[in-house]
């Protein structure tokens, strides 16, 4: 030990140590970088893969899921599977593909109860409040109901019929004498179970369950809906503020037409 201090600065042992340390650091950093990039890529869950009910948002889920498969085992319908290397889902994490087998929405949610780590949030106790994804009627051109037929299968198979999917009646402009019934998904009720996607009678479904962040739009934070605000306030918010109603200018307005020739807009109909 004592001759350590006497070693010249360029001793072969020191040189070898530094070289080895450098090589190790380079190798490890490179491997870490590759793995980091790979892990970053898997964070983009493919749209067809749906997480079990109660799953945390994807970024949190990947840090919380222990990849044990207990949820897979406790699913009584064997719907869940663990991703294997080569799939675009992070290796070992559970998912299902709605078109193959949709979630049966067990009332006691055994998959969530089985999760030991909390990647599936145990505070989800009502399966009807699950948000696995959001159904979107994505292809209007091929959907039979849009074409004026009464297929209605997605609506009929929905476990939350008339809440998550409703049929909205519209005039059929093609025949001009019939109605079309537009299947309409309501995001506040849809659990993303995938029954509609599974049930769709087309070769490739017109309605698909997508991850909620992909399917759901978000209005600007400052947006206010006039009619909602009016309901909240119990009265119009602009009527009493002395807002000047400017004259409406029409394209064919002649110089001699009186300004404000049209009546002011009906109270509360503006944004």
């Amino acid at each position: 030990m004592t001759d350590k201090t006497l070693k010249p600065l360029t001793s072969p042992a020191r040189r070898e140590f530094l070289l080895d340390a450098g090589k190790t650091a380079c190798g490890l950093s490179l491997a870490g970088l590759c793995l980091g990039l790979y892990s970053h890529q898997t964070q983009a869950l493919p749209p067809g893969a749906i997480r079990p009910p109660g799953a945390l948002p994807e970024a949190d889920f990947l840090g919380a899921c222990i990849r044990c498969g207990l949820c897979v085992r406790d699913c009584p319908y064997q719907i869940l599977k663990l991703a294997t290397p080569g799939e675009h889902v992070a290796t070992g994490t559970p998912y299902f593909v709605a078109r193959n087998l949709p979630c049966e929405m067990c009332e006691d949610i055994p998959c969530v109860k089985a999760c030991p780590s909390g990647a599936l949030d145990h505070s989800l106790t009502d399966i009807n409040k699950a948000q696995m994804g959001l159904a979107v009627l994505i292809d209007h051109e091929t959907c039979l109901n849009f074409l004026g037929l009464r297929c209605d299968v997605c609506y009929r198979v929905c476990p939350l019929i008339d809440k998550a999917i409703t049929l909205e009646q519209q005039h059929n402009t093609r025949t001009d004498k019939h109605a079309v019934f537009i299947p309409t998904v309501h995001s506040d009720a849809c659990t993303g179970c995938g029954k509609c996607e599974k049930g769709c009678v087309l070769e490739t479904p017109a309605i698909k369950v997508l991850p909620r962040p992909l399917a759901k739009a978000e209005a600007g934070k400052h947006y206010r809906l006039g009619w909602e605000e009016k309901k909240k306030a119990g009265q119009s918010l602009i009527e009493e503020q002395g807002i000047v109603d400017l004259p409406d200018r029409m394209p064919d307005a002649t110089p001699d037409a009186a300004p404000g020739g049209l009546p002011p807009a009906k109270q509360g109909n503006q944004l």
């Binding site: 793995l35 892990s39 964070q43 949190d60 990947l62 840090g63 990849r67 290796t91 070992g92």
Partner: peptide
């Protein structure tokens, strides 16, 4: 390195 990567990425990267 694996634990550092886990902390940076916020995911169980090693599990991949």
């Amino acid at each position: 390195g694996m634990l550092v990567l886990t902390a940076i990425s916020g995911t169980l990267a090693w599990e991949l």
